[in-house]
């Protein structure tokens, strides 16, 4: 009897180790924060138009608007209005403001008098289907560039939404797209300020 109990104990310990190993492997290693950068020195930022890799033409503008508003609402930075950013893009003559070079980032930050520039790539924005279940999914990655050298000082990505166990079992259509967008932005803001 005693031998049987010890046997179960070994099995439980082995399962626990396997579980822990599995969790460790699933952690995304793709976020970056420059540890030498003093983020408190950044008072104002310009959010450039996001690169849109989705089929929805206006999706990037929708997500950018949410991000700009939510970033301003944190009161950590002053976020330049999009009209002013657009004026800066025109004055700097950026052909592809979604993917600025280091020189272009420096140039636009000088024109707009900001301490940092944020660029983004919208990778997913739409509905995913699996069997009879469907749900909204948003995937966004962001980069923050400092203005002296135009180097990346912070980078993170987030994917939210998608089909959950509840969606599969109950057949619900997931959360509205705006809600999922807010979750993505919140997740990225948490990563920025952690």
């Amino acid at each position: 009897m005693k031998r049987k109990t010890r046997f179960v104990g070994y099995w439980l310990a082995s399962l626990w180790i396997l579980l822990q190993t599995g969790c460790a492997l699933s952690t995304p290693p793709n976020d970056f924060t420059n540890q030498t950068m003093d983020f408190s020195a950044i008072q104002s930022v310009a959010v450039l138009p996001f690169l849109n890799l989705t089929s929805d033409d206006q999706a990037a503008e929708r997500v950018r608007d949410s991000f700009m508003g939510m970033l301003l609402a944190t009161e950590a930075f002053y976020v330049l209005p999009s009209g002013e950013v657009n004026r800066g893009i025109s004055r700097a003559g950026l052909r592809t403001p979604q993917t600025p070079s280091a020189e272009e980032a420096k140039s636009i930050s000088t024109i707009l008098e900001v301490d940092a520039v944020i660029t983004g790539v919208l990778r997913e924005y739409g509905t995913v289907r699996s069997g009879s279940a469907e749900a909204n999914l948003v995937s966004l990655s962001l980069q923050m560039l400092e203005t002296e050298k135009g180097t990346v000082i912070w980078s993170a990505s987030s994917t939210q939404g998608g089909i959950t166990m509840g969606d599969r079992l109950l057949g619900s259509g997931g959360q509205p797209m705006n809600k999922v967008t807010e979750q993505v932005v919140n997740d990225l803001l948490n990563k920025l300020f952690e």
């Binding site: 009209g83 657009n86 004026r87």
Partner: peptide
């Protein structure tokens, strides 16, 4: 002309 909302100049 405001392509992305008013700028500070506007």
């Amino acid at each position: 002309i405001m392509q992305a909302g008013p700028s500070l100049a506007n």
